[in-house]
Design a binder for these strands. Structure first.
Length: 260
DNA sequence: GGGTAATGTGGAA
DNA sequence: TCCACCTTACCCA
């Protein structure tokens, strides 16, 4: 259930814990041929891009997309017996990583990897200066900004929770058409995206609400509007409705639907 | 122990 | 627009 910040967090944790000599297995059995073809190769690097992870073993790359249900389990060594659902286990120098229920786990060529990345828009964590490029893609479009934010061809890595919290941070109503946004409003939105995703990638979770000392509050209190009944800033009711195929959340006091 | 939602995506209808 | 994917976490009984 991860968005881009968690993908980057995983990439860092795996790079640090696995290093290069990695033992692969597929307890579940759906990745055994691929594991055989990777035998003896070093893990050269791990590239997070949007919600995609690329584990590069020379000319062969393992492409992982967790989808809605996929998740990783991390174990210190020696690792326990894997649960039978584990599609791919990677055992490195300091860490064992179990991948369960991914939407995608496949072996791809360099060309296929490049094609997957080419279909994505800028990832704010990789390209924090890409605001101008994205603005040119979406300016003037008669589509809600809340819908566009979920489009990976524009904003790689943004998911439903980030959409809600980033629009709140920028005080923009999710239903505002892109055509109604000024350049300055979009710049503020992009800045919020980079700031919130950067912090979330460091912490491994989205905690936009901060305690007076700057630390994150408990999980249930960490978001201003996402899955909240009331706005954690002003206390007004949070409205939730369907937008772009997912549930949108907004405080209509702090996020007016028309430009101020 | 059962039912349901979930931070996602793409292919079928 | 709907549904499958196929798992966990959490709610309720």
């Amino acid at each position: 259930m991860p968005e881009g910040h968690l993908i980057h967090w995983y990439a860092r944790a795996h790079a640090a814990g696995l290093r290069s000599a990695v033992e692969l297995s597929s307890p579940q059995g759906k990745f055994v041929d691929e594991v055989r073809r990777l035998r003896g190769r070093d893990l050269e690097r791990i590239e997070p891009y949007g919600k995609h992870l690329f584990y590069c073993f020379g000319e062969r790359t393992v492409h992982v997309h967790l989808g809605m249900q996929g998740l990783f389990f991390h174990h210190p060594l020696p690792a326990p017996e894997p649960r039978p659902q584990v599609r791919l286990r990677l055992v490195g120098e300091l860490l064992a990583v179990d991948l369960v229920a991914p939407r995608t786990c496949s072996l791809v060529s360099p060309d296929e990897r490049d094609g997957l990345i080419a279909a994505l828009g800028p990832d704010p964590l990789r390209s924090p200066d890409a605001a101008g490029r994205v603005w040119e893609q979406i300016r003037g479009r008669n589509v809600a900004i809340g819908t566009l934010l979920l489009d990976q061809a524009h904003f790689a890595g943004v998911g439903n929770a980030l959409r809600a919290e980033v629009l709140f941070a920028a005080r923009l109503h999710p239903a505002r058409p892109a055509s109604s946004l000024g350049r300055d409003e979009f710049e503020a939105l992009w800045d919020a995206l980079v700031r919130i995703m950067t912090l979330a990638a460091d912490e491994g979770r989205i905690a936009t609400v901060r305690l007076p000392d700057g630390s994150p509050p408990p999980e249930a209190e960490a978001r201003y509007v996402y899955k909240q009944q009331r706005c954690r800033r002003c206390g007004a009711p949070v409205r939730s409705w369907e937008l772009g195929g997912r549930t949108a959340y907004a405080c209509e006091r702090d996020q007016p639907s028309a430009a101020a």
